[in-house]
Design a protein around this nucleic acid. Structure first.
Lengths: 208, 208
DNA sequence: CAAAATATACTGGAAAACCAGTAGAAAAGA
DNA sequence: TCTTTTCTACTGGTTTTCCAGTATATTTTG
């Protein structure tokens, strides 16, 4: 009997997952959470958990962080990501944090159950669509979400709000040259040729 | 006994919704679809449908269009939107197309059932979070997603891809002045002061 | 404490965007 | 067929971004 925990901010999704999995005698949903922190508080006192079905977008902390903490606290617990994010960079980031599987929320019931079993069997599992994303040729994609410093995030946010470099400099009490250097660094990190591409990519990676 | 149809691109969500609603004796899920066109083909030959639970993001056509067609074909059929989109402009657009209710996918089971009943009773129903969005003071929000011409959409997409006006002009076989005029019109429609704000807003409204 | 990372700031210049206006042709709609 | 909308293109100019480099100070990390 495999113990399953579900962490997703959508109660309807939790309901759907529970219903699908409970139909399988070998699987038992032992707890569900709609927030990451509540789950992390639950984790140390929990019995053994075979697998966690984990969303990335949670209301309090990121699924990335939750995955990291799961792997730190219970290395044998498998993590299967179920998300709406279909960017290769995010998929790779989750795998790097120790997730054993990834599927999109539009996956079929059969795919879900297959992935759960594959992950429990010690394999890495993807739904068909994620497999297609992972295998298509790389084309102008950043390899991963770039690491941004605190100041860079601040400047990026203000750029996206439509502010000019002069206006940002005034508010942050720095020189316009400083802001221009931050912009340049941001463009290099995202491999963007201009501000439009920068903002689009940042939006795609949920950084705004 | 109320007949319900569910249209959502996520099978897991369909499963969750079905499970929650079937527990209510007055409600019966008579059909489910993961694509808009399949549902629209089904609609004319269907018996009476009291309410359709409809997502906005579908793989083939937009939930906006589906809603419009439902209201044209079966004006008495109620539409309750269940979506991840929390922008006021999108909510208003759905209401304008005849939807009677709107809730986000993070709504609780109780809220879902309450909204279904309220809509069946002839009321307009929102989940608490949507209600909060609808009642908060307007702040720098475009009133609705602006109407874009075919050419404007094309230019917007190319701007977002990082192209310069000169490069766009070359590919579209028009003058750079023409592209600049399109940019200006786009900025006016979105009430954006520069390209960064334009692209951010377009991304927010799922236009990219 | 040293190394690395981050933040800051400047030069000199070119490229691109933004501005506010004007105006005609073509396509679409009533 | 007329009106409206969309697309096209230009003027003359200012503002802003982008470029490639250099360099120092501060903070963080090992």
């Amino acid at each position: 009997m495999n113990n399953i925990v579900i962490v997703d901010d959508h109660p309807i999704v939790i309901e759907g997952l529970s219903t699908l999995l409970q139909a399988n005698e070998a699987l038992q949903v032992v707890a569900t959470f709609t927030a990451g922190q509540a789950f992390l508080s639950f984790l140390p006192g929990a019995g053994f958990i075979d697998i966690v079905l984990l969303d990335i977008t949670l209301p309090d902390i990121s699924g990335v962080e939750v995955c990291k903490q799961i792997k730190k606290t219970s290395p044998e617990t498998k993590v299967l990501i179920i998300s709406n994010h279909n960017e290769r960079s995010i998929i790779l980031q989750m795998l790097q944090q120790g997730a054993s599987g990834y599927l999109l929320k539009n996956a079929s019931s059969e795919e879900l159950v297959r992935c759960v079993h594959d992950v429990l069997d010690g394999k890495v599992a993807f739904s068909a669509e994620v497999m297609a994303i992972m295998t298509r040729p790389l084309q102008n994609e950043p390899k991963a979400t770039p690491h941004l410093t605190k100041r860079e995030k601040q400047v990026l946010s203000m750029i996206a709000a439509g502010r000019t470099s002069a206006s940002i400099a005034e508010e942050l009490c720095v020189s316009q040259f400083t802001v221009e250097t931050h912009r340049r660094n941001l463009m290099q990190k995202f491999e963007a040729g201009n501000t439009a591409a920068l903002i689009r990519m940042a939006a795609e990676q949920q950084l705004l």
